[in-house]
């Protein structure tokens, strides 16, 4: 008896739920952007980011796209233009050169969001970039970019390392790296206390940066980002500082990283590094101010 009543209720509920769906779904957003014509930069972005890679390049800041806890300021248009050209040359085209355009077309984040200021925390740290679920990369401190004489060192520290770092997150979130990586320095991860560790002490403990000590995912992507943007001389200097024990741990990790990138994504990280650095040496020949 009870079962019959329950079925009856379910039926009535279904009838109730189904009875009003006569409207067809409209493919247009219900909100329309009124009559702002696209600027030259907007058209350039369509042709260089949106059509070839399906990337929405958001240089006009939207508060809802960023963490509301931070006080942030938008990016200058001229800095956004320079950043769009630099990312295309140093990041997109570097991957294209190595693994072909299909790779980024498939895996690239769909939104790149620029923020003019850094995102400062009260614990004296600053967030330079974030990635969300493989969909979006946010780059901060875009207004700090010198668009006349860009410094590759600053670009690497502020933005390119972030791009490689966040993109590496997308790669491992798509296909995870071998679990053995997590065991190499399993007791070294310390969460948010990473900012209390100096670079030298991080190296000695077997981490390429203090931020690597936050978690094994961060460790993994920091290795990729630091390896790609730095020279072998820099890398060797880090290993020297790391000492015998630290060096062995870092080398064990980078071997796993190299194997993962090659077998999973057909990326030769040494070749990628050569391409990225060749391009980095050439940025002073780029015109970052005209489209």
């Amino acid at each position: 008896m009870k079962k019959t009543i329950l079925y009856l209720f379910a039926l009535i509920l279904l009838v109730g739920a189904g009875s009003c769906n006569k409207d067809e779904i409209n493919s247009q957003s219900i909100f329309v952007d009124p009559t702002t014509p696209p600027s030259t930069f907007d058209t350039w972005l369509l042709n260089n980011y949106t059509y070839p890679y399906n990337i929405e390049f958001k240089y006009k800041m939207e508060d809802l796209e960023s963490p509301l806890t931070y006080q942030l300021a938008p990016a200058r248009i001229e800095n956004s233009i320079a950043m769009a050209k630099l990312l295309k040359y140093l990041w997109i085209e570097a991957y294209n050169e190595h693994v072909g355009i299909d790779f980024l077309q498939t895996h690239v984040p769909r939104v790149i969001h620029l923020v003019g200021s850094g995102a400062y925390n009260t614990n004296n740290t600053v967030v330079l970039g974030t990635a969300e679920g493989g969909m979006k990369i946010t780059l901060y401190a875009v207004n700090d970019l010198d668009i006349v004489n860009p410094s590759i060192a600053q670009l690497n520290t502020y933005h390119l390392r972030t791009m490689h770092h966040e993109f590496a997150h997308i790669l491992h979130q798509t296909k995870n790296y071998p679990a053995e990586f997590k065991l190499i320095t399993v007791n070294g991860y310390m969460g948010d206390d990473w900012d209390k560790v100096s670079q030298a002490n991080a190296l000695r403990a077997g981490f390429i940066s203090a931020y690597s000590m936050k978690s094994y995912d961060e460790d993994f992507v920091e290795l990729i980002a630091h390896y790609i943007i730095n020279t072998q001389t820099w890398w060797n200097a880090q290993l020297t500082t790391a000492g015998t024990n630290g060096k062995a741990l870092i080398e064990e990790k980078i071997t796993v990283v190299k194997g993962y990138l090659k077998s999973t994504w057909n990326i030769d990280i040494d070749e990628m590094r050569r391409i990225v650095q060749e391009r980095a040496n050439n940025i002073n020949n780029l015109d970052l101010q005209t489209l």
């Binding site: 800041m61 939207e62 508060d63 931070y70 006080q71 942030l72 400062y120 925390n121 004296n124 740290t125």
Partner: peptide, 24 residues
Amino acid sequence: LTFNTYNEVFHLFVEPFGASDVDG
């Protein structure tokens, strides 16, 4: 109403000053 790209005259009231003053 949003002012979504940087204007030095206006956004000086908006931008953070750094880790010592995170909200400017």
